[in-house]
Amino acid sequence: MADPKKEFDWFDKPASRKLLWWVLWITCGITVVAELFIHRHPHFEIDGWFNFYSILGFVGCAAMILIAKGLGVYLKRSEDYYGEPDEDTPSNDIDGNAS
């Protein structure tokens, strides 16, 4: 029987992370292959391309991350940029319960 005091830390283990990577790659692979077995009704010419949605998802998301990264150079500022005091409210006072 597992030690009741030991906390659940499955996601921290390298082996688990490796397994999750495999699951992700295999699932992606399945979705690619699955297209061979379905009949599609494209509304535009472009969405009739083989694996259009996989490409759109991959390229689009990669582009958005790169754009965000690029914009971050110009748009990111330190947290005290506006000169506002940073109060760490006690968690039980977040809705004013303590007073």
Partner: peptide, 10 residues
């Protein structure tokens, strides 16, 4: 699923 899984992969 293609759209979402490849987004997750990215």
């Amino acid at each position: 699923m293609q759209l979402l899984m490849f987004s997750a992969l990215v």
